[in-house]
Write a protein that binds this DNA or RNA. Structure first.
Lengths: 147, 147
DNA sequence: GTTTGAATGAAAATGAATATCAAAAGCACA
DNA sequence: TGTGCTTTTGATATTCATTTTCATTCAAAC
């Protein structure tokens, strides 16, 4: 699966005539080894730990490339930092975001996806991607709120 | 309806012990007279036209208050500017965002809302609000793309 | 009116993201 | 394996939205 993703990016890079560099390999490895929703800062620190030479700007640039290649997706939450999440082929997952503890729970619902397509059709709209976030309190936080 | 909204905010202000000021009245009027998705910049310019004395920071602060009061909601698109939209009581509307011409089409779907509630329930999650954006090409842009 | 603390406006500060540019590195070709 | 050309990089400066600061103004309770 990781190999498949590397291939996705390499194909994209080849098609765009991008050069293959050590830095991009490292950042790709690191990105693939993370869990969901890495901020640029997060990834930069992770990268710097083992490769101190790699700069901030390169991480920014490279993550934008990942997004362009379809490997990653930018998510805007409300903390002013762009985060990147993995795009698993053909899979859309959406988020429950806890406003108490900032926990993010992922979910997926095929019916909602279907309905989205219907809505798009009704408006003559061609879907490229979508994003859904539900804000509220997670089970823990709403339990704490009661106590 | 506009009166109802003013009341919403005034109630909120009263409950929070906020003072009623000329600036907030003006900004509220201006906000209510806009259509969807005003950026702070937009509203600031609109306000400044008739009330040159009112400052940038006040518009920022006031819009945040509107959001807190439930009157408005922050939307993050991908252009680096926070926008505010009207929250109509009890109504959730979501967006089709055209990546070609930046047009925003609104829609509403009761079934999706229901499904969201089910999903939240399944995770013990209490919904406060939600946001759904579908990205792609609007009818015009995809027609142009063909041509 | 006086008093008191919140609200304002102008300007400075912050912070994420992007641009700049000289130096380094990839890649095609000899 | 070098040569030349172009992309990429890293450090830094810059931009731009948003937030903070702080002295002044103003709302509202007494």
């Amino acid at each position: 699966m990781i190999l498949q993703k590397k291939k996705t990016f390499n194909d994209f890079a080849a098609a765009k005539g991008l050069r293959s560099t050590r830095q991009r390999d490292v950042i790709l490895d690191m990105f693939l080894s993370t869990h969901q929703h890495v901020s640029v800062e997060d990834l930069y620190l992770k990268v710097k730990a083992s490769h101190p030479g790699i700069g901030y700007a390169t991480v920014y640039r490279t993550l934008k490339l990942f997004a362009e290649s379809g490997l990653a997706r930018e998510i805007l939450l409300h903390d002013g930092q762009t985060r990147y999440e993995h795009v698993l082929a053909g899979e859309h997952h959406d988020h429950l975001v806890c406003t108490g503890c900032s926990a993010i729970i992922e979910f997926e619902d095929a019916t909602i996806e279907k309905l989205q397509e219907e809505i798009a059709l009704r408006h003559g709209f061609q879907i490229r991607s979508h994003k859904m976030e539900i804000y509220g309190l997670c089970a823990d936080c709403s339990a704490k709120g009661q106590a």
